[in-house]
Design a protein around this nucleic acid. Structure first.
Length: 568
RNA sequence: UGACCCGUGGUGUAAUUGGCAACACGUCUGAUUUUGGUUCAGAAGAGUCCAAGUUCGAGCCUUGGCGGGUCAACCA
């Protein structure tokens, strides 16, 4: 175990929380030689989600704050649910978020031999026994929170018999469910977890790392604290529901303790987000039953889903800082998450023009066959991003929403007889509206003012709107996937009598197959971020092919016009 | 009917050894703007679940209520 010689004082700039205070107190009391060592302990039975990101940022953030270390540990004590696929995705996600466990990658299964030895020690000390009863009987004997349990008839077995039976359990002589190893603590404890908890159960399952070496596997409560201990963890951060497990955590560590060093469990409130479900079981259900297209579906709150949606690691880390850490079981508004991406992407995303709901415009006084290259700014928030050329020609596409035949008062955009600016190009005025036999508008005829090249008119004439556009002949035809929240209800899991899936938003994905983007996007790679001006942030989806680029909408821009409209 | 945890504007958090509640998101004005974005200026919004107590003084301490959460997998 490595000693951290330099413990830096807590950074007063960063917001404090109750865990900092407890660690400060531990440090002040001289505990654990002044070390701070945390761990992130996922079970590899699913993909990581934004709630895990909170925990990852917390654990690695603590280490950073105090000059300590953080281990990655896979809590793989239940082979029936765990898979290598999950191990790989978890490592990828933690790295993507920007954290590094260096050489400290552990698996609970690494400790199976030591755990087994320790179990034998407890048996020898008369602190553990083999119980022959089945699960149901044991469960009944355990009592209820308000009613004490009763002791198992096998509780008083001799050490010799227990040793023999446990050895035979280990050797595979018994069937699943036939026997368990239990800690001998207190069947009358007001804390259910202290009523002779099960340490080992028989599972004849293939483990993703230890193969068929074992046929008994340790329970979480028996494994976790000891793994912490052997890894030299000082602060074992977990979520609130483990609070009642703490006495048991401490009990096992007490039996193990051989020096002043001692890991300590601290619990915090897990993340709840509005309009989303966060339980792995529910996320797995969405995936398995094809309600979404896999764990990395951009509508999923998984790290891989958020990545594919276009979220950046920075934005998730900033979000994590903003929400803080407490023991209050609350619910955070998704709009805070959305704010975090916008904030980051506004500073960093390449601007580009793209028309997702095209309406053709012909500039009738612009020479046929002529093309001009106009200068456009790549990112107004970052001068070093430079400029690019955008082709302009006689036939263009603009957004359908940017034209109204009969515009209301507050509508600033194009209408019959109105003049607007095409960004970086010219002022244009609408002269004719062309419709098909159904009365649907199919094309606009406009004239441009050659003197307004670049977007300014020499006579100082003002326009009320600036529209994005794409030259029809140069456009890159693309598919754009418009994502919205997966659920319509603020708390889809919060209704006892209604299944969360009943709240799924049927409009959570709208595929627009015929969008036109400016040629600049031709060179982009999957996961590249853009702002489509006036529309939102988008990124290229890995489904893209050279012939058919695909973009996902990460989040829309703030839209005070849409807000104005929704007031009506 | 038990044990443990929690209770600060709409939401999330903060408040140094107790010293008349700060910040962010959201909301609402207004300004600027070649993105109805960004930015900037400003406003509204809690007297800290309730009650009693200790104190010159309590969101912070004490007691009692009330409200919410967690715990009865051979899951983690």
């Amino acid at each position: 175990m490595v000693q951290n010689k330099t413990i830096t004082a807590a950074d007063p700039q960063k917001k404090s929380n109750f865990i900092h205070m407890q660690i400060d107190a531990d440090l002040a009391a001289g505990k654990n030689d002044g070390r701070v060592h945390t761990r992130f302990p996922p079970e590899p039975n699913g993909y990581l989600h934004i709630g895990h990101a909170k925990s990852i940022c917390l654990n690695f953030g603590l280490a950073e704050r105090y000059g300590g270390k953080t281990n990655l540990r896979f809590d793989d004590t239940n082979p029936s649910k765990e898979e290598t696929e999950y191990v790989d995705s978890i490592m990828e996600d933690v790295r993507w978020l920007g954290f590094d466990w260096e050489d400290r990658l552990y698996y609970a299964s690494d400790f199976f031999p030591k755990l087994h030895e320790f179990a034998i020690q407890l048996v020898k000390e008369g602190k553990a026994y083999v119980d022959d009863q089945d699960a149901e009987t044991i469960s009944q004997q355990r009592g209820t929170p308000q009613k004490p349990g009763v002791e198992s008839p096998f509780r008083t077995r001799s050490v010799e018999e227990n040793l023999d039976l446990f050895a035979r359990m280990t050797a595979g002589e018994f069937n699943e469910g036939e026997k368990v190893l239990r800690a001998k603590i207190d069947m009358a404890s007001p804390n259910m977890h202290m009523r002779d908890p099960i340490m080992y159960r028989i599972m004849k399952a293939h483990h993703h790392r230890t193969g068929d070496k074992w046929c008994i596997y340790p329970m979480y409560d028996y494994a976790h604290g000891q793994c912490d201990f052997w890894e030299g963890i000082t602060h074992s951060i977990c979520t609130l529901e483990f609070e009642v497990h703490r006495p048991l955590y401490d009990w096992f560590v007490d039996q193990l303790q051989e020096s002043d060093y001692r890991p300590r469990q601290i619990e915090f409130a897990r993340l709840n987000l509005t309009y989303t479900v966060m339980s792995k079981r529910k996320l797995l259900e969405l995936v398995k039953d094809n309600h979404v297209n896999g764990w990395d579906d951009p509508r999923m709150p998984t790290i891989s889903g958020l990545r594919r949606r276009g979220y950046t690691p920075e934005s998730i880390r900033n979000f994590s800082d903003k929400i803080g850490v407490t023991k209050v079981d609350g619910m955070i508004d998704v709009s805070l998450l959305e704010f975090s991406v916008r904030e980051h992407l506004n500073r960093t995303a390449q601007r580009v023009m793209g028309v997702i709901n095209p309406l053709k415009v012909v500039i009738t006084n612009y020479p046929e066959g002529q093309t001009e290259e106009l200068d456009a700014i790549n990112n107004p928030e970052d001068e070093s991003a430079g400029t690019r050329k955008v082709p302009f020609s006689r036939e263009l596409y603009i957004e359908r929403d940017d034209f109204m035949e009969d515009p209301p008062h507050k509508f600033f955009r194009l209408g019959p007889g109105r003049e607007v600016r095409l960004r970086y190009a010219y002022f244009i005025a609408c002269t004719d509206v062309i419709k098909d036999e159904n009365g649907e508008i199919v094309e606009l005829h406009c004239t441009y003012d050659p003197a307004s090249k670049g977007g300014n008119s020499p006579d100082g004439r003002k326009v009320k709107a600036t529209l994005h556009w794409v030259s029809a002949a140069h456009a890159v035809k693309s598919e754009v996937r418009m994502y919205d929240r997966l659920f319509n209800d603020e708390d889809p899991s919060g209704h006892e009598d209604v299944d969360f899936k009943d709240f799924m938003n049927p409009g959570s994905l709208k595929v627009l197959p015929d969008c036109y983007l400016e040629p600049f996007v031709k060179d982009s790679k999957p996961f590249d971020h853009f702002q489509f001006e006036r529309l939102g942030y988008f990124n290229m989806d890995p489904d893209s092919t050279p012939n058919k680029p695909v973009f996902n909408r990460t989040v829309a821009l703030r839209d005070s016009w849409a807000k104005e409209q929704s007031k009506q």
